[in-house]
Computed example of a mutant assay.
Amino acid sequence: MADKPLGRPMKFPYTTAAQIAQFPFKFHFQNQAYWKFYVISLVVCLPVFYKLKKLTNSPGNVAKWEEARKKEAAEHH
């Protein structure tokens, strides 16, 4: 009984939930190059972002930043 859909789809879904439920996600994922390029760019950029994060949060860089902030605070007071 639960496998049979109740009623029929609306000709124009008025509510946001109905619009999302009827949106052809599978068709768009298979036929638009955007999603393929999005995944490729994520794979390429994530290692770069990880290396940049490690570089900027290194202990030497953090100590240098704190020293610069202390020096700046001393000049303002």
Rank of each mutant, 00 (worst) to 15 (best):
V39Q: 08
A21N: 08
V48E: 02
L52Y: 12
I40H: 09
K54W: 08
A17N: 12
N31H: 14
E72I: 05
F29I: 02
V48N: 06
P59I: 06
K26A: 15
L52Q: 15
G60Q: 05
E66I: 00
K51Y: 11
V44H: 05
F25L: 04
E75W: 06
F12A: 11
K11V: 10
K53N: 11
K51L: 13
V43C: 10
K4C: 10
D3S: 15
D3I: 11
Y14C: 08
C45M: 13
V48A: 09
E67N: 03
K54L: 08
I20L: 06
A68Y: 06
P13E: 00
T56V: 12
L52W: 14
H28W: 13
Q19R: 15
M1G: 14
P9E: 01
H77P: 01
A63S: 09
V39H: 10
L42G: 13
F23I: 02
V43S: 06
K71S: 01
K36V: 14
A18N: 09
W35I: 10
V48Q: 04
T16S: 12
A18P: 03
V43Y: 11
I20M: 07
M1V: 15
Q19M: 15
A73H: 00
Q32N: 09
L55T: 15
V62T: 11
A73E: 03
E66R: 07
N31W: 10
P59C: 04
E67T: 06
M10Y: 15
L52N: 15
R8L: 14
K26Q: 11
R8C: 11
F27A: 04
P47L: 05
K11H: 09
K64W: 06
A63N: 04
A33D: 00
D3A: 14
F23L: 05
